[in-house]
Design a protein around this nucleic acid. Sequence first.
DNA 1: GGCATATAGTTAGTTATGCAACTATTTCAA
DNA 2: TTGAAATAGTTGCATAACTAACTATATGCC
Lengths: 146, 146
Amino acid sequence: MPNNQFKRGELYSVINGMASIAVARRLQKNFRQAGLEITIEQWSVLYHLWKEDGLSQQELCNRTFRDKPSITRLIDNLEKQKLVKRVSSKEDRRMNLVYLTDSARELQDITIGLANQTMDEALVDVGKDDIEVVKLVLQKVYDNLK
Amino acid sequence: MPNNQFKRGELYSVINGMASIAVARRLQKNFRQAGLEITIEQWSVLYHLWKEDGLSQQELCNRTFRDKPSITRLIDNLEKQKLVKRVSSKEDRRMNLVYLTDSARELQDITIGLANQTMDEALVDVGKDDIEVVKLVLQKVYDNLK
DNA sequence: GGCATATAGTTAGTTATGCAACTATTTCAA
DNA sequence: TTGAAATAGTTGCATAACTAACTATATGCC
């Protein structure tokens, strides 16, 4: 087979592969080293609740790009760890609204600090302009495939 | 809390989030629509074997950025589907060398075609120069965290 | 009002990931 | 040469992802 068939495929591994996995692992490691027992997936849910508390599970699906079963189980686990509470909505009884507990609110500053530190570690020697290009391209990729 | 604490954190979701997930889902969908019953994870292993057959599991770990248990189980499943075969190395009996079967070789052209098509869909209206910047930045991110 | 349809969430089954602990083999140095 | 350390791979356990099938509630049209 012609070898150039692989050339474009490399792009897949670049965009999809190493970098995002490496960032995720480093963030998880930074959490662990700080003695925090939450997963990055759980953190990504809390992150959206810190910005706006009391979101429905469906809204969390939209904002975290996950499907409904994934959110159901993430909330299950967060509830077990007493970080969130499901409250069934009074306007629409199909909906659960998800609220932070006090212990979750305590995690906000330190974990966001660790996330920022992780991105600083990841972006050493990367120019601001280049970062902007990456953000725009990845946003465009997402829009293209949505 | 000051709202700008979130600002840098957004980078995490940009680099780690939507785009790579969207690309992966689209590729999986394109495989499914073509009637191919392999996962993108299995495909990523085959991809490296097409480039060089008979790699050890450890070498597949390095090239796919996975740990050893992940590769063990991916190879388990690929072996069940009769796409690869483990052959214990004669030079070093600790090692399994992983070889493609004929059915796996048949998948090469069509799946790499689908991966290239997926990247074309993802990269509509993205300039070649910008793609180069993304590749360089993500490579740099990976190196920074390695 | 009543029934079809849409929406919110859950459950079950399969695949995959990460960590820790384990076995088997090889290497290397005292 | 032998015994400690390194390396290759596997297994068990927990978390998370996707699909498909399911329940419950709400909406909307006739």
